[in-house]
Design a protein around this nucleic acid. Structure first.
Lengths: 348, 348
DNA sequence: CCAATCAATGCAATCGTTTGCACAAACGTA
DNA sequence: TACGTTTGTGCAAACGATTGCATTGATTGG
């Protein structure tokens, strides 16, 4: 079907080596005559030659492919990230292979295994979290690797993420400033980096403001919208419901919105809502959501730069980069006076 | 670094062939003794053996990889599609490689080229459209290939898509039934399958209802939100603005919403809106959008099934499958009486 | 006892590229 | 003339896995 160097060699009467040099090398280096070059190129075109990257990869021990692992490709945050990464990688002549782990650590492990088997030149991983033995093994096997968005404090490996603690501080402080004290937190998957750091920021903000932490207001267990939906319904049944909810991710917020709509709860008049993540459509929601934006473009640029650096220079010291999040104030938070709080509570 | 069959052979004292048979074959077939099997497996584990898929692919002329090409990975419709495809493919033991063409036909062509060079076992393509010579070449080279969502009527190739004409008919008929006659259509990229078929449905619905087609109400030129934003602003400046807008894709609708918000136009009271595509967040928008839903799950199931069939059976006749779209009525369309139309117009 | 069968394994070619080394012819130089 | 250089090209060994075809020693049937 597809022709090979050999086919071209046969057709032109030169050797395979010469053909290879003409088609892929800087053929100056080997001083191939112009006439031979012409002949070979012509034959290649006629035969529809396409290099076989498997053979090249095998020979060179280099595939020009980067493995990407994300928890959920359909999550707008990650699909934006992938798109951005793709662009950055393309600039450097790399292709990429994505794996979607569906927030499942065992799928993540098998993804890592597959990528090793494919001999990718490096990996960029947004890990589910929870555990990192598989990633540690990669590092020890000297595979260039950068963690993005979801990383591990206790694992010495290159990483870029946003300062989640600070993001939560921004969000919760904003709510507090608007007079809220009963602020619920709907978590993502416990044990993951993103979740624990965001939770930490939430607690710290409350502490700093001298507001006690009510464990009943910390609920939920995964980053999907169903979690937001169910937990919001549950929170609303609370005898003294929260006046504000802070969600750990965009999909959770969507679920929360759905629950509110179902119960006729209006945002922000009945309940305030702030969320981590800020995908494109946040500002079109009803109401436009106040949200914590992560600098996706910058994250991906840095991740790719770090990966290239690591590939060139395997023994450099490893770096952990934290980027600044940003609070985008829109219209899902209302100002609460002491009075409104009291009337609300007595209304229950 | 990573060990090979040879390393294991050396360590255990058996031949490479035997190692290969133990690790990858149904080793019954070659009657390898239990004792040898044990030894080999043990050594493989100790050495941390990982198969080299490049070598396997080269030898077998089969990679167990499928190429995926989509116009925009960050578009929720396509990211949902990818996720769904990934699941289906995984079931069959296939991995996949995605390319995002950014709605650019020249990137699509180079993606096709790359995938050929990687010797993928098949491709699933949601084409930009406009042109199909590159895809025709693939087909003629006997690469198993299925077009999904974006295909070509005039190209004989397996494909699954939704009945776009019918979808537009549903949408526009709904608007007409609610009393609208000045209905604008904000297009996607002209010359693409999705766009032309949706446009066709739009025109047909108007014709069927005896409503003349006003070419000034057919605007726009790409599937991104900026297009929706700009064209909506422009439409609103029209001396006799439309009472309803039908957008060819979800991102266009988002752009339209943004423009309306900016101009203080309320939906649906001032303007009705219906869109093609129905990503998860549609129902959380302000207001919840009436939209045409495509059966993504079914599309991907069928696409993968067709691809497997084509891989098994290269010479079967090719099929073109059209699935039913669905109109989801929500709250972005208002009923228009003759009276309201008149008052509106005189208000201008 | 000899031939046929079988169990268990090894040999070596192959997939398509790349590249260090060798080599012949032509050229320059002293 | 003799020798070093340059030019242009080919040889052959990798890269790691698979598999048809031996091969060997043991077992069985007649």
């Amino acid at each position: 079907m597809s022709s090979t160097l050999k086919d071209i060699a046969n057709k032109t009467g030169v050797s395979v080596s010469t053909v290879s040099r003409v088609l892929h090398d800087n053929s100056k280096k080997y001083k191939i005559s112009d006439e031979t070059q012409e002949r070979v190129k012509k034959a290649a075109k006629e035969l529809g030659y396409r290099i076989n990257t498997l053979a090249r990869g095998l020979r060179l021990q280099k595939t020009y492919e980067i493995g990407l692992i994300v928890p959920d490709i359909a999550n707008p945050f990650f699909s934006a990230m992938i798109k951005s990464l793709a662009g950055e990688l393309r600039k450097g002549g790399y292709n990429f292979i994505v794996y979607d782990t569906d927030e499942d650590i065992s799928i993540e492990k098998s993804a890592v295994k597959s990528l090793m088997e494919k001999r990718v030149d490096g990996m960029i991983i947004a890990s589910v979290g929870q555990e990192f033995s598989h990633i540690q093994k990669l590092r020890d096997a000297n595979v260039p690797i950068v963690m993005i968005d979801r990383c591990f404090d206790s694992l010495d490996i290159d990483s870029v993420s946003v300062d989640n603690v600070k993001g939560s501080l921004f969000a919760v402080n904003h709510l507090i400033k608007e007079g809220h004290t009963r602020i619920a937190f709907i978590q993502g998957l416990p044990g993951t980096y993103a979740n624990e750091t965001r939770l930490q920021g939430y607690k710290q903000a409350l502490n700093d403001a001298g507001i006690g932490i009510d464990e009943h207001l910390i609920v939920g267990d995964d980053f999907r919208s169903l979690n937001g939906y169910l937990e919001t319904k549950h929170l609303l049944k609370n005898p003294v419901p929260p006046t504000a909810i802070f969600t750990a991710g965009d999909l959770i917020a969507l679920g929360a919105l759905e629950a509110c709509r179902e119960h006729g709860i209006r945002i922000p008049s009945d309940l305030s809502l702030v969320t981590f993540d800020d995908p494109v459509f946040t500002s079109y929601l009803s109401p436009a959501l106040t949200a914590i934006e992560q600098p996706i473009q910058k994250m991906t640029e840095m991740a790719v730069a770090m990966l290239y650096r690591r590939m060139r220079n395997p023994d450099d010291e490893r770096r952990k980069i934290l980027l600044e999040p940003k609070l985008n104030v829109r219209s899902s938070v209302t100002r609460l006076t002491t009075l409104t709080t009291i009337t609300r509570i007595t209304n229950q």
